[in-house]
Nucleic acid binder design. Structure first.
Length: 480
RNA sequence: GGCGACGUAGCCAAGUGGUAAGGCAAGGGUCUGCAAAACCCUUAUGCGGCGGUUCGAAUCCGCCCGUCGCCUCCA
C-alpha cells in the first residue's frame, strides 16, 4: 500500500495503488519520438509522473521511474535524409533539446531514458518469442502481431475488433491476416537504418520498443504506465497485447495512467496540427515553478487550456505562494517579537490536506488550494509571530509540499551571486538606509530603481529592508 | 457512425448525497514617505437544460443540449 489512489484506464475506476513489490513503486512514462522540438504539452505527463514519484517518496517509499526516447521512426529517417545527416545525429539533436528542457523545468527524478536503438537485442528476442508462441507471423521480412490471437484485444480502449474495422479509415494491407494487425518488425527499405534479425535486416515497429524496454527495466506486471490519453489507442492497446503475449503474465501493467490533452484555442496542441508552443519559448516567459502551477492547477483528467493569459494568471498566483514563503522565511530570520501563534496546527492541517489530495488520484488543484490556505494563515500570523515553532513548521510544510510539485523550481534564491556582489548590494542598501533616515526619498528611490534594473528587488518592511534577485526563467538568472 | 471524457461565479478551478475550497480579475477599505508585500469587505439561494430517486443532490438515475479526445502519426 502506498496510500495513493489512481484512476486506472484499464478498469475505469479509481483504485488503490498496490505495488507488485511491497515498498517500491515502478513507473514507466511514455517519452517522445524525437523528431521535433519539445512542446509545452509534452510536459504534462512528466509533471504528473514526477508528483507520483516524489509523493510516495516523501513518505519513505522507494520509487523507480523509467522513461524513453523513440529514436528510430519514419519521420526521423525522412527528415534526417532531407538534411543529409544520419538519423542518429538528427535524433540526438532533439534528445538534447528534451533533456535540457526537462532539467530546466526541474524534472530530474527519471532514472533512465531508454533509447530504442540501444535495445534492439531485447526487441528482436521479444518478437521471436511472440512468433514462437503463435501471436505473430512473418511476411516478406515484416512481422505482424495477430490481434485475433489475443482474445482480449481492445480491453484498454474498450472497443471490439468489429467496431474498429467498421470505423477504420485506412486502406488494408492485403498481406495482413486481419486489418488491425500491427507491425512488430519492419523490413528495411533502401536508405533506412537497419539491424540484423531472423527475418532479415529491418527495424522495430512503433509499439514494441516501449514493451521491450519497460519489461527489461521494470519486469513483468510493473505498477504504473503513464502517458497522454491520445496513446490509449493504438499505442498502449498494442503494448498490452504484445507484452502479455510475450510474458504470459497478466496484467502487463497494473495501473494505466492517462492525462487529458493540453489545448490551445479549444483544440489539442500537437506537432501535426501545427498549433503548438515550444517549451523553450514558454520557459522564457515564466519561471519553472509558475509553469508547474499552471499545468497542475487543473486535474490531469481534464483538458488544460493553454493561452498566454492563462500563463500570466498562473504566474500571479504563483507569486502569492512564493511571497508567502519568503515572508515566513524572512520573519524566521528576523525573529521579531510577539506571542506564540497557532500556526503549527494550521501547518499540520495543511500538510495533511495536501497529502490527502494527492493521494486522491493526484488531485493537484486541491493540493494547491491547501497551500494557499497556509499562505493566508502565515500572512495573518506574521505581525504576532515570535518566529518560533509555528512559523518554523509552516516553512517546513511549504518547502516540502512545494517540492513535491516542483513549485520552487526556478526561484531566484537559486541564483548564484558572488560574495562580492552581495557585499556591494548590502553596501548600497546601507547607504540607502541612511538616506531614508534623513528622509531623502530621492536618493533612496534612485538606489532602489537602479538595483531593480539590475534584476535586484528591494522591499521595505516594518522590520527593515530586504533584497533578492528577481524571479525569471532559470537560465536567465537575475540579470539579462 | 462507434468508443470515452467533460460542462461549477467575469475568468481558472476543487468539491461525487448533507447544504458551494482556493486562485486570478474587479470594486471599496486598512497599512505604507513611495513602491512591494499584506489584511478586511463585496462578487454563484446556485453548480449546461428538463424530469426522476431521496428528509436532503453540483454530487445518484433518465433524456436532451454543448464542448473535447480517440477510432490515422501524436504526451
Amino acid at each position: 500500500m502506498t496510500g495513493v489512489r489512481l484512476f486506472n484506464t484499464l478498469t475505469g475506476r479509481v483504485e488503490d495503488l498496490v505495488p507488485r513489490d511491497p515498498g517500491i513503486v515502478r513507473i514507466y512514462t511514455c517519452g517522445p519520438t524525437v523528431y521535433a522540438l519539445t512542446l509545452l504539452a509534452h510536459l504534462l505527463p512528466y509533471f504528473l509522473s514526477a508528483a507520483l514519484v516524489l509523493h510516495p517518496r516523501s513518505r519513505g517509499a522507494a520509487v523507480q521511474w523509467i522513461s524513453n526516447f523513440t529514436d528510430v521512426d519514419d519521420r526521423i529517417i525522412t527528415r534526417a535524409n532531407a538534411e543529409g545527416i544520419t538519423p542518429n545525429s538528427y535524433a540526438e539533436r532533439y534528445i538534447r533539446d528534451y533533456l535540457e528542457n526537462m532539467d530546466a523545468v526541474g524534472v530530474r527524478a527519471v532514472e533512465r531514458y531508454a533509447r530504442v536503438t540501444e535495445h534492439i537485442a531485447e526487441i528482436v528476442d521479444m518478437v521471436e518469442t511472440i512468433i514462437r508462441k503463435g501471436f505473430a507471423y512473418e511476411v516478406d521480412g515484416d512481422v505482424y502481431f495477430s490481434v485475433q490471437a489475443k482474445s482480449d484485444y481492445g480491453k484498454l480502449s474498450g472497443r471490439s475488433l468489429d467496431e474498429m474495422v467498421a470505423g477504420a479509415r485506412v486502406r488494408v494491407d492485403e498481406r495482413k491476416h486481419h486489418p488491425m494487425d500491427f507491425a512488430l518488425w519492419k523490413a528495411a527499405k533502401p536508405g533506412e537504418p537497419s539491424w540484423e534479425s531472423p527475418w532479415g535486416p529491418g527495424r522495430p515497429g512503433w509499439h514494441i520498443e516501449c514493451s521491450a524496454m519497460s519489461l527489461h527495466y521494470l519486469g513483468d506486471n510493473f505498477d504504473v504506465h503513464g502517458g497522454g490519453d491520445d496513446l490509449i489507442f493504438p499505442h498502449h492497446e498494442n503494448e498490452i497485447a504484445q507484452s502479455e503475449a510475450y510474458t504470459g503474465a497478466e496484467p502487463f501493467v497494473r495501473v494505466w495512467l492517462h492525462n487529458a490533452m493540453v489545448q490551445i484555442d479549444r483544440e489539442k496542441m500537437s506537432k501535426s496540427l501545427g498549433n503548438f508552443v515550444t517549451l523553450k519559448e514558454v520557459r522564457r516567459r515564466l519561471p519553472a515553478g509558475a509553469l508547474r502551477l499552471f499545468m497542475l492547477s487543473t486535474h490531469y483528467r481534464k483538458p488544460l487550456a493553454y493561452s498566454p493569459e492563462a500563463l500570466e494568471e498562473a504566474q500571479r498566483a504563483w507569486s502569492r505562494l512564493v511571497a508567502g514563503k519568503r515572508n515566513a522565511v524572512f520573519a524566521l530570520r528576523g525573529g521579531g517579537i510577539g506571542t506564540a501563534d497557532d500556526l503549527a496546527a494550521v501547518a499540520d492541517a495543511t500538510a495533511a490536506a495536501f497529502c490527502e489530495a494527492l493521494d486522491d488520484d493526484l488531485n493537484t488543484s486541491g493540493a494547491l488550494g491547501a497551500l494557499f490556505d497556509l499562505v493566508r494563515a502565515i500572512n495573518l500570523a506574521l505581525p504576532r509571530s515570535d518566529g518560533g515553532v509555528g512559523l518554523r513548521r509552516a516553512v517546513e510544510v511549504l518547502e516540502a509540499c512545494g517540492n513535491e510539485l516542483g513549485l520552487w523550481e526556478g526561484l531566484s534564491e537559486e541564483h548564484a551571486g558572488t560574495a562580492t556582489t552581495e557585499a556591494l548590494v548590502q553596501m548600497l542598501l546601507d547607504v540607502r538606509q541612511r538616506a531614508r533616515g534623513y528622509r531623502d526619498w530621492e536618493v533612496s528611490d534612485q538606489i532602489r530603481a537602479q538595483l531593480a534594473e539590475l534584476g535586484i528587488v528591494v522591499e521595505d518592511t516594518p522590520s527593515g529592508s530586504r533584497w533578492r534577485w528577481a524571479d525569471t526563467g532559470r537560465t536567465a538568472g537575475g540579470i539579462q
